[in-house]
Design a protein around this nucleic acid. Structure first.
Lengths: 205, 205
DNA sequence: TCGTGGATTTACCAAATGGTAAAATTTACC
DNA sequence: GGTAAATTTTACCATTTGGTAAATCCACGA
């Protein structure tokens, strides 16, 4: 057995690993993987660079750890879509959960966007392993809803893509959005009813 | 006057500048600004690195030149939206032009996406100067259409955001999309009717 | 064909960057 | 309080990378 013993981490370990990951999320999401330096992360975390590397094996290790940990949070809104609920309500609730996520976790959204944009070089397998099965499952669910006549005919895959695209847009392209909307306006407050109307009409029949 | 004389470029100048910009578009769109090296661009363009720098002042110069040249192409579909046409037809035509653009120019789409994602550090002014006025103009147009009762009440800004998001999604997140749809399937062929239905219902009243 | 200016290569360089070795310091536990 | 382990710092290093200087090559018009 070549398994790490994995003793429980000390208080210091916990605190510093958290600080590093939070700092790294901040920097990675703003500058991308290659645009981020270990020095930047170290400074943001309040540690020295060699001290970073005491907690993580290297830059890539930090990045992959972040992405992996985020994956669950990220997929959670979709997981919660309930097969026993009302189709329209379930999908609309999903839309609003996803929009709330873009609002509350914009750094996470941008981190993922950057990774996918560049071809998912470091989380491709994770996508295959976690996202794909969940996606297929929910597509099948929506398809049965359509077959039961509880939703109008539609392609569940593109529906989901549209939900992802429209909600994450506000986080991923925040710069552009705020530039066009005006800095002070509450973008999400007006986006919610718009998306609600749009998808409700789409599902209404 | 401190203006460059700007004699007409020689045949070699034209050929090489084109080759460099095309190579740079390829590499920048795949690896982002910081993830791209001059050596990569040089190799892709079939030139030596110092030779690159004979044609451009530096890495940033290449990047900015690319983005600036692309801006016009990028905004063109929106420019074409005709105030004198039928509102629904005009907007739907815009949706399809934008989708075609994502299909035909995915590298350009990803180049822009990467730049915006990181806060538009190099084309912020260009966005302000070109995109913003056009956006405001078209928003005003759509608003008059709504006021004339030719469109249902809606927020033109979020409508445009939704169009951008859903169409560019297929280029920017191509990796994820192809992973979830299956590599061989013609994604755009099935995306077109989906988006057509969705936005038509949105505009239908 | 010859000379000139444009184009290209060769040989570099300084700074940035990911990472390491080992000494020094702190912490936890007896 | 002492000691062993965990943590942090100091001092480095090799590679990568954007960029430059100067020599060389070459196309083209007179």
């Amino acid at each position: 057995m070549t398994q790490t013993p994995a003793k429980k981490p000390s208080r210091i370990q916990q605190r510093n690993r958290r600080a590093i990951l939070d700092a790294a999320l901040d920097v990675f999401s703003r500058h991308g993987y290659r645009g981020t330096t270990l020095d930047q992360i170290a400074e943001a975390a309040g540690l020295s660079k060699p001290n970073l590397l005491y907690y993580f094996e290297g830059k890539e290790d930090i990045h992959v750890t972040l992405l992996s940990q985020l994956m669950d949070t990220w997929l959670d809104p979709l997981v919660e879509m309930n097969p026993d609920g009302d189709p329209v309500s379930e999908i609309m609730a999903y839309v609003h959960r996803k929009l709330a996520m873009a609002k509350d976790l914009p750094r996470e959204s941008r981190l993922f966007a950057g990774e996918i944009l560049q071809g998912a070089p470091r989380i491709g397998p994770e996508l295959q392993g976690h996202l794909k099965p969940l996606f297929d499952e929910k597509c099948a669910l929506i398809t049965t809803w359509v077959e039961q006549g509880r939703l109008p005919p539609l392609d569940p895959r593109h529906l989901i893509f549209s939900i992802w695209a429209t909600t994450q847009h506000y986080a991923d392209f925040e710069r552009q959005v705020s530039l066009l909307m005006g800095e002070d306006e509450d973008t999400y407050a007006s986006a919610a009813p718009h998306l609600d109307t749009m998808f409700r009409k789409m599902l209404g029949g």
